[in-house]
Design a protein around this nucleic acid. Structure first.
Length: 283
DNA sequence: ATCTATTCCTGGCTGC
DNA sequence: TGCAGCCAGGAATAGA
C-alpha cells in the first residue's frame, strides 16, 4: 500500500523522467479512475510538465498554463513510464489511464512514450484541471501538515488539541498527512506507545518520542524505497525493501523484535493494528 | 467532535 | 480441482 515513503519514491523516480516532457494525449481506459467532468483530461493535451511533487500521499504534477494533475494511488495504484515497444508488447488489463507524451527526439526507441497509471482494484483516482481547482479539492485543501515536515513542538501541540485513539488519529490525513496503516503501527511501536492510547492523555515526552519515531521510520523507509508488501513496486518495476525492517506490521503471533513478546493484532477503526503488548503500554 | 458502518474493487485465501 | 464466500484496506460519506 502506498504511503508517504512509497509515494515519495514514485515522485523521485518520475520527476526526472517527466520534467520537460509534453503531453500529447490522454487515454482514459477506465472512466471511474478519472474524477470530475469527462472532458478534463483532454485539456492537458499539448501541456508541458514542469514539476512532479508530493503532498501527503497525493502526487501533484504541474504543467504550463497552470494546468495539472493530482493522483492518489490508494491501494494498488502504480505509476510508471513505458516505451512504445513496452506498451505494444504487453496487453495489461489493469492499465486505467495513459498519458501519451510527445517524443523528445524522433526515432529514439529507448525513449518513454507514456506515463501509465495502472490499478488493479480501481480505488486510485486521477484529477485533471487548473492548479487552483486541484489545490482546492476538498481532500487536498483539508490535508494536515506533512508527516516529514512537521516540527516536534507543533506535533505535540496538535495532539493535545485532539481526542480519540492515537492509531485513528495518525491515520487521519487532516491531522497529519502521509502516514498509513504500516507506518502508523511502526511509529507507535518504536515510540513504545499503545495504539489505543487516548491522544489527549499522552505525556509531552511521549508525544515528542512519537514524533521522532514517526520521522525516523519514514526517513528510513524513504531511503529503502518504501515497503513492497501487497502490490507496491517502484515506477521501474523493482520492489522497495523496507518490509524487511518492519517490527510489528503484519507480524501477528511472531516475536517482538525488541522484547520477544508475541505481537498482537487488534482492529481499531476498521483497520488491522499490530503492536507489542509488552513494549507498548497505555499511560 | 468523534465514532461506526458502508461503499468502492479484485486477487488471494479458506473451507468444503 | 472447483467454487462460493470472505477478507484487506484509504478515503468519502452518512448516520449515531
Amino acid at each position: 500500500m502506498p504511503e508517504l515513503p512509497e509515494v515519495e519514491s514514485v515522485v523521485r523516480a518520475l520527476a526526472p523522467a517527466l520534467t520537460g516532457r509534453s503531453i500529447k494525449s490522454v487515454e482514459v481506459r477506465n472512466t471511474s479512475t478519472v474524477a470530475g467532468s469527462p472532458g478534463r483530461p483532454a485539456a492537458l493535451a499539448g501541456r508541458r510538465i514542469d514539476s512532479v511533487a508530493r503532498r501527503g500521499k497525493y502526487i501533484r504534477i504541474h504543467c504550463d498554463r497552470n494546468l495539472g494533475l493530482a493522483i492518489h494511488l490508494r491501494m494498488t495504484g502504480w505509476l510508471g513510464v513505458k516505451t512504445a515497444m513496452e506498451l505494444a508488447a504487453e496487453a495489461d488489463p489493469y492499465v486505467r489511464v495513459l498519458f501519451h507524451l510527445h517524443p523528445l527526439k524522433e526515432g529514439a526507441a529507448s525513449q518513454k512514450e507514456a506515463l501509465v497509471f495502472r490499478d488493479i482494484r480501481k480505488f486510485g483516482r486521477v484529477w485533471c484541471g487548473p492548479d487552483p481547482a486541484l489545490d482546492g479539492l476538498k481532500a487536498l485543501a483539508k490535508l494536515g501538515p506533512d508527516a516529514l515536515a512537521i516540527e516536534p513542538a507543533a506535533f505535540a501541540e496538535r495532539l493535545r488539541a485532539r481526542r480519540g485513539r492515537l492509531k485513528s488519529l495518525l491515520l487521519d490525513q487532516t491531522f497529519l498527512a502521509g502516514l498509513g496503516n504500516i507506518y502508523a503501527d511502526e511509529a507507535l511501536h518504536e515510540a513504545r506507545v499503545h495504539p489505543l492510547q487516548e491522544a489527549q492523555r499522552l505525556s509531552n515526552a511521549k508525544a515528542l518520542a512519537l514524533h521522532a519515531a514517526g520521522k525516523g521510520v519514514l526517513e528510513r523507509a524513504c531511503a529503502a524505497g518504501g515497503s513492497s508488501i501487497d502490490d507496491y513496486l517502484h515506477p521501474d518495476g523493482t520492489p522497495g525493501w523496507f518490509q524487511r525492517e518492519l517490527k510489528v506490521y503484519g507480524r501477528e503471533g511472531e516475536p517482538c523484535r525488541r522484547c520477544g513478546a508475541k505481537v498482537r493484532r487488534v482492529v481499531v477503526g476498521q483497520r488491522g493494528t499490530w503492536f507489542c503488548p509488552k513494549c507498548q503500554r497505555k499511560g
